[in-house]
Amino acid sequence: MLEIKNLTKVYKGEKVAVDNLSLKVEKGDIFAFIGHNGAGKSTTIKSCVGLLDFSNGDVLIDGVSILKDPMYCKSVIAYIPDNPDIYEYMTGIAYLNFIADIFKVDKNERLALIDKYATDFEIKQNLGDLIGSYSHGMKQKIVIIAALLHKPKLMIMDEPFVGLDPKASFILKNMMTEMCKQGMAIFFSTHVLEVAEKLCNKVAIIKDGKLVVSGNTEDLVKDKSLEHVFMDSANLNINAVVGGEDE
């Protein structure tokens, strides 16, 4: 569903943000993309959804290159950014309708979906209010609902759990599992390693723009935890750190 081939992104001819990165997300995968701050996660994600052009490589979505047919690629994916900067001058319902119009979602279908998701995320009462009056979490909920309206084949999310209340996080996790069972693919970045470990069947760790670990979660974690795998990949010995503190 998503294939990143030798992706390289260099900012202003100097900083290599992503260096020859390749990975594959299959149908039904929940794929966690992990890395420290500034590792290149957001740059990779933004390149995948057509927000950033890249210096080298290619991104295939559903077998189609984002460089060759960006319109098709964008029509089958849903993107949730790390910061829900959305149109504050619109009401929640106006925004959802706008997104549904762009994706040409049938009127009755969109109504049913808005009704269902808004009820699940407990935001139905606020749909008539201006987005400018929403809290960060409410904006995040609206972005998530908007992303689900056109039933995308691939969801690409940058830190989707930030700002969500525990119930909304729980609902989103269940939705992600359910949608992947139906053949959708999810690729998301996160710093919450426990969530990634429990939720995802595949994990990739990026460090300084380079992919250092990638594979099935079970195979990578084995008898350890994802936190250990991450710390090892970051060339840090977690035992030494913990031991140092104890001393």
Partner: peptide, 18 residues
Amino acid sequence: KRSSANFKFDKDKNKSTS
């Protein structure tokens, strides 16, 4: 922030457009 939280979901008022 002005938040009335009193939105009534009226299916007839919801219009789709091009």
